[in-house]
Amino acid sequence: MQKIEIKITKVREEIASFYEPKVWHFLTLNGVALDEETLEVQWIFSRYEALDDVVIYFSKISYDTLIPSIVELIPSAIISQRELVDMFGVPVEGTEKGLYLDEDSMQKPLAGCKL
């Protein structure tokens, strides 16, 4: 497992220069709440037909930072982005909320510190 830190503003350039559809498999977009203010966003890739070759691009941001969308590069990222918006309440470019949560359910269930 290889972890590479990138700046949130450079996400699209970095992933565009790295991602090749026939070599890398986009796994998912993940968020980890570090504390009340910081969120670690991870873009996880794995190599086809290789033994446990996983690359994680990550970036530490605050909850009101706009996360750039990578849907133009990887169309299947849209569903992960919608989940991220719902679960952490962070804004992602061109992504609406409401994949899982309704108006009256708990908002941002995974954001911030634990109970």
Binding site: T28, N30, V32, A33, P75, S76, I78, I79, K114
Partner: peptide, 18 residues
Amino acid sequence: AMLDRVRIKTPTFASIPA
């Protein structure tokens, strides 16, 4: 004893765009 994060990426979730 409490974990920080458990992220579950399930198969059907990833293939909905397809």
